[in-house]
């Protein structure tokens, strides 16, 4: 028994990815939440809303994807 009370081992990259996923998670939630609300308010604009929703989604998603790539790049 060493003096260490509790120890966590593993890859720091996965923690980094977990942190990187918070922001895009919130962003994607807002985008789709607002998108569904907009569709409910104006169903005839569905095509336009869906397209802009996907556009916003991919911009937010890019951050999470960069996180997953960098978790592998900066592996300890």
């Amino acid at each position: 028994m060493s003096g260490v009370l509790a120890e966590v081992t593993g890859n720091l990259g996965s923690i980094g990815y977990g942190l990187a996923a918070i922001g895009p998670g919130v962003g994607i939630g807002i985008i789709f939440g607002q998108g569904v609300q907009a569709i409910a308010r104006q169903p005839e604009a569905y095509g336009l809303i869906r397209q802009n929703m996907i556009l916003g989604f991919v911009f937010a998603e890019a951050l999470a994807l960069i996180g997953i790539a960098l978790a592998f790049v900066f592996r300890a």
């Binding site: 991919v58 890019a62 994807l65 960069i66 997953i68 790539a69």
Partner: peptide, 13 residues
């Protein structure tokens, strides 16, 4: 750059 990374990272993940 994100244009390329988006496609690459989604497919890799």
């Amino acid at each position: 750059i994100t244009h390329a990374i988006r496609l690459f990272a989604t497919m890799m993940a």
